[in-house]
Nucleic acid binder design. Structure first.
Lengths: 145, 145
DNA sequence: TATCAAACGATAACTTTTATCGTTTACAAT
DNA sequence: ATTGTAAACGATAAAAGTTATCGTTTGATA
């Protein structure tokens, strides 16, 4: 047994991922980045250490990390913009199993927020809530197994 | 004074938008669409009524409608995927002007939700909240104009 | 060390969105 | 109603973001 802290090697072992130089640097760079970097931003930083790295490698490994839970995807990516006419304030229930999206009214959600401004002087226009969970039909399916 | 219900003409007048045939059909078609259509899906439907309409017109008017508040954008569009390493539970403040994303803790958000299940038997795992608004720096910028 | 699947780099292709530009149309002011 | 003008339209090129392809290189296991 080596050091007590979890190394990148350990992390990869946990998730059954091969340890490559590119992945290691990618991981270290991302850990050192504040905020919510885009793949291009990550790419620019990693190139400082591995000038020959390909953008495709950055994309492939970001996906790999997201899928294995090493890091989290911030913006839900539907591949394109989506719009809706429904002008009654409502939010969305997203099934983590089957990815179905259903609407839910603000009142039914039982959500209370009266704030107009938030820390940092952020002026609130509206809230967009995604409730992540398991829909009724996926729950039934789980019980029959 | 004509009919009591609000016509598309009235809506345009309210927002200072010119009434064109394309916009009228676009609006009617979107009102008749369930769910969260993408621009391509809207385009396909509108073409049934105006085969010569351009996809660019659909995009331009969707943006116009969103900006003027006639309809709402569902998926926040940051232009690209974003990721984060932060594994502490938190939500996001997204500036509708400059698209900047800042973290906000669950406690600071002052959000109350005790529900474990929601209508339709949806089992809640977690909430993902995007607060849409104007960040402090964009507010300052707006005041200087 | 040798083997082989997996990962890499380079780049083409694809998808989504925006910009450009000549033509057409809506609006208001005659 | 006619006309002038700014705005909107259609066609399409270009940009931005992402994914797929494929020959070469590398990591993991034996």
């Amino acid at each position: 047994m080596q050091a007590a802290h979890k190394t990148f090697r350990d992390l990869c072992a946990e998730h059954g991922i091969a340890v490559t130089h590119q992945r290691q640097i990618l991981y270290e760079v991302m850990q050192g980045m504040e905020g919510h970097p885009s793949p291009e931003e990550v790419y620019a930083r990693v190139r400082e250490q591995i000038p020959s790295i390909s953008l495709a490698t950055v994309y492939k490994n970001i996906h790999l990390f997201v899928e294995s839970g090493v890091l989290r995807e911030v913006s839900l990516h539907h591949g394109s913009i989506r719009v809706e006419m429904n002008d009654v304030a409502h939010h969305h229930m997203v099934c983590s199993h089957c990815k179905a999206i259903a609407d839910i009214g603000e009142a039914e959600l039982g959500l209370e927020t009266k704030r107009r401004t938030l820390p940092g002087g952020f002026l609130v226009e509206r809230f967009s809530v995604d409730v992540i969970g398991i829909c009724a039909s996926c729950q039934r399916e789980a019980q029959n197994n």
